[in-house]
Nucleic acid binder design. Structure first.
Length: 721
DNA sequence: GGGCAGGAGA
C-alpha cells in the first residue's frame, strides 16, 4: 500500500518536472490572491516544492532532488530560502557530494544546514571533513550550538586528536552552550572515554544537570572499553540507585563488563533483571547475555540463549561462533559457521577472523583455505582483522609464504598484524625475517608492544639467535619501557638454557617475582638437554613444592634420570606419580591424508592398515641406515636392554604417522604434515631428516612447541630446539 | 537538524 502511494507520488513528481514552463509565479501580496490558469503564488510554490522534496527523500531519489533544483532555477523561483531544504534533501538521499556542492554555492547558510553537513560527514566516517566545516563555521562567525557540539565531538575521538577535542570543549563552555545538556554531555563523555581519559569523562557526568540513561551508558561503555570493568559495574549500580531505568543498550554494555570480569554472579543477576524488565526479545542485550556466559566458560548456556532467539542477527551468530572457539569447541564453531551461511546471514571480518581462528587451532589448512576464498569473495582479504587471522592460520599450519603474501597485501599494517607475521616466522624458525620485520617497525613508526617482544624473543629462541635475543631483551626496559611479563622471562630462560648458559638462566629466574611452574619447568628442561643433574638437584624440590601434582615436572625428571640411566630414581618418581595419581600425557601423532585425520600412538597396531604401515617403516629404516642413520637410544625412556631399546624407538607415533602418509600418498608433490601433541623426539627428528632425503619429499611436523620443516636431509630448526 | 549500545585478531 505504502509502496503504491510512493510510486504515485513519484509519478506525479516526474510529470510536474517535465513541464516546467507551465508554471509562472505571482507574488501574492502584489497581485492579490488571484489565481490564473497555470499560475500559482510563491507561497503555493514553496508549499508544493516542500511536498515534492519530502516525497523525494522518502524514495531516496537524488535525481529527483536535482530535477527540483533545476526546475526552481529555470522557473525563476527564488532558490535562496530553499537552500537548507535542498541540502537536507540531498543528504537524506545519501548524496553528500551534491549537498556539499550546493552548500558551497550558498551565500548564506542557516545553522541547521551547518549542523546537517557536520552530522552527515560524521555518519559517513568522514571526520576530517566534519571538522573542516566546523572550523569554517567558527571562522565565518556562525556560533555553534548544542546540536553542533553534540555531533562534532565524535570526529575528534575518531581522529584521535585530543588537543583539538579539548579546545572544542572549551569553546562550548566559552559560548555558554549548555554543556550540561544531556546530548552534549553524553557526546563529551564518549569523547573523553575514547581518549582513555576516564577522569575527565567522569567529571562531565558529575557536572551534568540532567543525567539520563544515555549519559550513564556512555560512561559504562567507556570504562569497560578501557578495561576498567569493575568501575563500569559501579556506574551501573550508581545509575540504578539514582532511579534511572536501564535500557537494552545499558544491559548490553554492563553484561560485557561482567563477561570481562568473569563475574558470573552479577551476570546472572542482570540476566534476571532483563527478563523481569521485559527485554528478553531485545537482540542486543541477549547477544551480550550470550557473550557473558561464554566468557564465563558456560558455553552450553550461551547456546541455550541463542536457541531462544527468534531473530539472531549477524552479530549474534558471530558472538556464538567466537564463544565456541574460545571454549575449545572449534568443530562446533565451524558447523555453526556453515549453518550461518546456509541461513544467508551476511558475514563480516569479525565472523571470518573467529572462524579462521578455529581452523588455526586445529591446523586445518584445507578448511582454512576454503575460508580464505570466502574472505576474498567478501572483499575482506586486505582487511586487517581478517588478514591477521589468515596470517595466523598459515603460520600455525607451517606455511609462512602464503602468510607473507597476505601480510604484504594488507591495506593497513598495525601492531597486531605485524605481531602475527613475526609470530608466524618465529614458530617456523625463520629468525632473520622476524628480526627484519621487527626492525622495520621503527621506520613505520609502529610502537612494539608486549606481544611483539614475546614473538621476537621466540623467533630468536627458535632460530638460536642468542646474542640478538639478549640485546632485544635488554632494550625492552631501556628503550621501550615495556613491562617484563612471565612470557618474556620464559623465552629468555629457554633461550639461555638451551644454548647452555644455564647459570645465567638461573640468575634471570631470581629477578622474577613468584616464578610459576611453567618457568621452572623451562629451566629443568634445559638442564635435561645439557645433562645438568647437579642443578636439577638444586632446584627440583622448589618446583615440586610449588606444584606437587604437576605431571609435566614429574615426566621431565623421570626422563632426565632415564637418559642418565639412573633407573632407581626413575622408579621412585613413577611410584610417586602413581601415589599422587599424576597422569602422563601419552604421546600422540596425527596426519591428515585425503581430508581424513589418522591418529597414532607409539607401538600402535590399531590402524586397519597396520601391516602396510610397518612394512613401509621397515623399508624406510633400511634405506636410512644405509645413509648413516644410527638409532639414538638415549631417547628410550624405559629400562630395556639394547635390542629392545631400538625396537621401542622404532615405533614412535611420529614414525608411524609418517610411514602411513608416505605409503598412502605416492604423488611426490603432495605435502606431508604431521602433528604431535608433545615435542618431537630427538631420534625421530634425525630419522625424519634422513627419510626426507631418501624419499625426496618435503615433510613438516608441528609439535607442541613449533614447526620442523624437513627437506633433503635437513631441518629448518637447524637441529636446535 | 542531534547524542548513547551489542560481535573480532597475536
Amino acid at each position: 500500500m505504502m509502496q503504491g502511494t510512493r510510486s504515485a507520488g513519484a509519478a506525479r513528481l516526474l510529470n510536474f518536472i517535465t513541464e516546467p514552463k507551465q508554471v509562472t509565479y505571482l507574488h501574492s501580496s502584489a497581485y492579490g490572491a488571484q489565481r490564473v490558469s497555470n499560475t500559482i503564488t510563491l507561497s503555493q510554490a514553496s508549499h508544493f516544492y516542500s511536498s515534492l522534496l519530502r516525497q523525494c527523500t522518502q524514495i531516496k531519489s537524488v535525481t529527483n532532488v536535482k530535477a527540483i533544483q533545476t526546475h526552481m532555477i529555470t522557473s525563476g523561483f527564488p532558490i535562496l530560502n530553499f537552500g537548507s531544504k535542498l541540502v537536507d534533501g540531498y543528504l537524506k538521499c545519501g548524496s553528500i557530494l551534491d549537498a556539499r556542492k550546493l552548500f558551497d554555492e550558498m551565500p548564506e547558510r542557516h545553522i541547521v544546514t551547518w549542523n546537517s553537513m557536520i552530522a552527515s560527514y560524521i555518519g559517513n566516517k568522514r571526520s576530517k571533513d566534519a571538522i573542516g566545516i566546523f572550523r569554517r563555521m567558527v571562522l565565518e562567525g556562525v556560533f555553534p550550538d548544542e546540536y553542533t557540539f553534540s555531533s562534532v565531538f565524535k570526529a575528534f575521538s575518531e581522529l584521535d586528536i585530543e588537543r583539538d577535542g579539548r579546545r572544542a570543549h572549551s569553546l562550548c563552555v566559552v559560548l555558554g552552550v549548555n554543556a550540561s545538556n544531556a546530548f552534549v554531555s553524553s557526546a563529551l563523555v564518549d569523547m573523553y572515554a575514547k581518549f582513555g581519559k576516564m577522569r575527565d569523562a567522569r567529571l562531565v557526568l558529575d557536572g551534568a544537570m540532567e543525567k539520563d540513561v544515555v549519559l550513564f551508558t556512555a560512561l559504562i561503555v567507556g570504562y569497560s572499553q578501557q578495561g576498567e570493568d569493575a568501575e563500569a559495574l559501579e556506574v551501573f549500580r550508581c545509575m540504578i540507585n539514582e532511579g534511572v531505568n536501564a535500557n537494552e543498550y545499558t544491559f548490553a554494555s554492563v553484561l560485557i563488563a561482567c563477561g570481562n570480569l568473569g563475574d558470573l554472579g552479577d551476570g546472572k543477576l542482570i540476566h534476571g533483571l532483563i527478563v523481569k524488565m521485559g527485554f528478553e526479545s531485545a537482540v542486543a542485550s541477549q547477544t551480550s547475555v550470550l557473550t557473558m556466559y561464554s566468557k564465563c566458560g558456560l558455553i552450553d548456556e550461551s547456546m541455550k540463549v541463542f536457541k531462544q532467539l527468534a531473530h539472531p542477527n549477524q552479530v549474534t551468530w558471530t558472538s556464538l561462533i567466537a564463544g565456541l572457539v574460545q571454549n575449545g569447541r572449534e568443530e562446533m564453531a565451524l558447523t555453526k559457521f556453515r549453518k550461518m551461511i546456509r541461513n544467508s546471514v551476511n558475514l563480516n571480518s569479525y565472523t571470518l577472523s573467529s572462524v579462521l581462528r578455529a581452523c588455526s587451532s586445529l591446523a586445518m589448512l584445507e578448511e582454512g583455505r576454503q575460508i580464505h576464498a570466502i574472505v576474498k569473495k567478501f572483499g575482506l582479504d586486505r582487511d586487517k582483522y581478517a588478514g591477521a587471522a589468515l596470517i595466523d592460520l598459515y603460520g600455525k599450519c607451517g606455511s609462512t609464504q602464503p602468510a607473507r603474501l597476505v601480510f604484504d597485501s594488507l591495506m593497513e599494517v598495525d601492531v597486531v598484524s605485524m605481531n602475527s607475521m613475526i609470530y608466524s616466522y618465529a614458530q617456523n624458525s625463520v629468525g632473520p625475517e622476524a628480526l627484519d620485520l621487527f626492525h622495520m617497525m621503527k621506520d613505520m613508526s609502529l610502537q612494539p608492544n608486549d606481544v611483539t617482544f614475546v614473538s621476537v624473543l621466540l623467533a630468536c629462541n627458535n632460530a638460536g639467535l642468542v646474542e640478538e635475543g639478549c640485546q632485544i631483551f635488554a632494550s625492552m626496559k631501556n628503550d621501550y619501557n615495556i613491562e617484563l611479563s612471565k612470557d618474556h622471562y620464559a623465552c629468555m630462560v629457554d633461550l639461555l638454557g638451551r644454548s647452555g648458559r644455564l647459570e645465567e638462566a638461573e640468575m634471570l629466574m631470581k629477578q622474577v617475582t613468584n616464578p610459576d611452574v611453567v618457568l621452572w619447568r623451562t629451566l629443568l628442561s634445559a638442564c635435561r638437554i645439557h645433562g645438568k643433574v647437579d642443578m636439577v638437584e638444586r632446584i627440583k624440590n622448589r618446583v615440586l613444592e610449588l606444584a606437587p601434582e604437576d605431571g609435566g615436572t614429574h615426566v621431565l625428571l623421570s626422563n632426565l634420570y632415564a637418559s642418565k640411566g639412573n633407573w632407581n630414581q626413575v622408579i621412585e618418581i613413577k611410584s610417586t606419580m602413581k601415589e599422587m595419581k599424576v597422569k602422563k600425557n601419552p604421546a600422540m601423532s596425527w596426519v591428515d591424508v585425503d581430508k581424513e585425520v589418522h591418529t597414532f600412538m607409539a607401538g600402535d597396531w590399531s590402524h586397519p592398515c597396520s601391516r602396510e604401515i610397518f612394512e613401509k617403516l621397515d623399508e624406510l629404516t633400511e634405506k636410512v641406515k644405509i645413509l648413516g642413520y644410527v638409532p639414538d637410544t638415549r631417547f628410550v625412556l624405559q629400562d630395556l636392554d639394547g635390542d629392545n631399546k631400538e625396537k621401542s624407538l622404532y615405533c614412535h607415533s611420529e614414525k608411524l604417522a609418517l610411514a602411513f602418509a608416505l605409503w598412502k600418498t605416492s604423488n611426490k608433490t603432495t605435502p606431508i604434515r604431521i602433528m604431535k601433541n608433545l615435542r618431537v623426539c630427538g631420534d625421530c627428528h634425525t630419522w625424519i631428516k634422513f627419510v626426507s632425503k631418501v624419499v625426496q619429499r618435503e615433510i613438516s611436523a608441528r609439535d607442541a612447541k613449533r614447526f620442523h620443516h624437513f627437506k633433503d636431509g635437513f631441518c629448518s630448526c637447524r637441529d636446535y630446539w
